[in-house]
Structures are given as C-alpha cells and as structure tokens.
C-alpha cells in the first residue's frame, strides 16, 4: 500500500506533464488533476513549429548523434575489451590500470582542451566531436563492462576454436561477440540513453540552429517562450522523453543487470 502511494508520488510529475501537454494553457495551473476535462492537442502542432526549424529536425540530429555514438562504442569498446580480457601482451596490467584511472577523470578537465582542439580543426558545428571519440574507445565504462563479461566466459571456447584453426579475428567475430549479446545490449542501451540525454557537449559544439539536438532546442525553447506557453513546452518535452521510455521498456532486463553488476547509473 505504502509502495503504491510512494510510486504514485514518484511518477505523478511525469503523468502530470503528459496530461498538461493536452490541456488548454489556462487549465494547466488551475487544475492539477491527471485527467484533462478538456483536451487540446494543438500544443503538439504549436511546439513542433515554434522554433526556427520544425522539431523533427532536432530529433533527427539527436538520432544521428546517438546512432554514431552507439556504433562507435560497440565496435571500439568490444575490440579493446577483447584485447584486455583474452590476449597476452606486454604492459597489459599497466594499460588496464590506466584505462580504469580514466574513469575517474572529471569531464570538465577534458572539455576545454578538447573544445580548443576541435575548434582548431574546424569541427565545431559538426557532429564529429560528439561521434569520433566514441570510435576511439573513450567510454572506459563499457570497456570495463565487456572485460568483466568476457572474463566470465570459459576460455575453452577460444582454445577449441584455435585448434580448429581459427585466428583471433575469427574468434572475436564468430565466437565472443555472438555470445556476448547481453553485454553488447547493455552497452547499446546505456549509450543510447546517456547520449540522448546528454546536454553539455551538445550545447558547446552545436550552436547553429539547423544542427541542434533535441535537448539543446528544448532549452532554447524555454528562453524563447519565457514561460508563456507551458502546454507546448511540455508537449515537446514529452516527445523528447518518449525514445528513452521506449528503450527503457524494451531493454529493462539488460539495464537492471547492467547496473547491478557494474554500478552504472
């Protein structure tokens, strides 16, 4: 019983936001109930066209950044993890330790020199600063996650394949990756959600309106309306939350396992 009430209090603001996005503006503050007495879907059309470009463009930009980051993390982190977990080479312990240390480096130390670097090579106002680093295995979290997963797999698998004449690449592609689907799924889901929600780096690198991602556009929308049309603002907020919600529904299993084993957010 307490659980139900508490859960309701937790999700009430979210439900209220959804309800408010279909209420006439005048009713939003007068009526805090969840079931709108009068529905009005015009907020969605208004919000969609309120900024200099249709909101769909911002969603598309977000999707491009997310897909790039996702692909990059899956490829580069699984490669690095394979080397750390399965191959012997000099300095392995040292480099692994170094990789773990980078987990502790606050993003603020990197963001200024990276910005300087990317602006020197004229990558500001492109998606490249948001995507290319992901292809260079800079998200050490996921390397760690996959190393843990690979280590849990029996080495007999590799040995047997080796006897059958398989090379390292074949073992990586044909044996490890297919059975590591849970770890890859966890990586993909977290990369999706974190990148979709990410704000700071997108705010810094994407200043041209036609390149802005959904969170940045949403933020500008707050300034543009200065709180006059809450309904449309909520409507667009709801739209940006929907992808995260869908990924959450589909990937729950992996999410719960992922945080339970590595303590990620």
């Amino acid at each position: 019983m307490v659980l139900i009430v508490f859960g309701l209090v937790m999700v009430y603001p979210l439900l209220w936001m959804i309800a408010s996005s279909v209420k006439p503006d005048a009713l939003i503050f007068r009526d805090p109930s969840l079931l709108p007495t009068k529905t009005d879907f015009s907020h969605y059309a208004d919000g969609w066209n309120a900024l200099s470009h249709p909101f769909g463009l911002y969603l598309l930009n977000s999707a491009i950044v997310v897909l790039g980051a996702l692909l990059g993390n899956l490829v580069s982190c699984s490669m690095a993890a394979y080397a750390f977990a399965r191959l012997k080479f000099r300095g392995r312990a040292f480099f692994f330790g170094m990789m773990m240390l980078t987990l502790m480096v606050p993003v603020y130390v990197l963001i200024i020199p990276q910005y300087v670097m990317f602006s020197k090579i004229e990558w500001v106002n492109t998606f490249l600063p948001l995507i290319v680093p992901k292809f260079l295995a800079t998200d050490a979290f996921f390397i760690f996650l996959m190393v843990q997963f690979f280590r849990g797999l029996p080495t007999e698998l590799d040995e047997a394949a080796k006897i059958d004449g398989a090379g390292y690449w074949r073992i990586y592609f044909r044996i490890l990756l297919p059975i590591s689907l849970p770890a890859l799924a966890t990586t993909a889901i977290f990369t999706f959600i974190w990148t979709w929600n990410d704000f700071l780096s997108q705010l810094i690198y994407l200043t041209k309106p036609e390149l802005q991602t959904a969170p940045v556009a949403l933020r500008n929308y707050v300034d543009a309306t200065s709180g006059a049309s809450w309904g449309s603002l909520f409507a667009m907020s709801v739209i940006t939350l929907i992808p995260v919600f869908i990924v959450f529904l589909v990937g729950q299993r992996y999410l719960v396992k992922g945080i339970a084993t590595t303590g990620m957010k």
Partner: peptide, 21 residues
C-alpha cells in the same frame, strides 16, 4: 594482434584523453 585490437583505444587515450589533460 592485441596492439591492433587496442589501436582505437591508444589513439583515443593519446588524442582525446591524455593529450587534452
């Protein structure tokens, strides 16, 4: 082979993490 698998990570470590630090 290990160096090849780690190549992206090395480039990222030098260019996107350590260098900027």
């Amino acid at each position: 082979t290990a160096w090849v698998f780690l190549l992206p990570w090395f480039v990222g470590m030098a260019g996107v993490t350590l260098g900027p630090m």
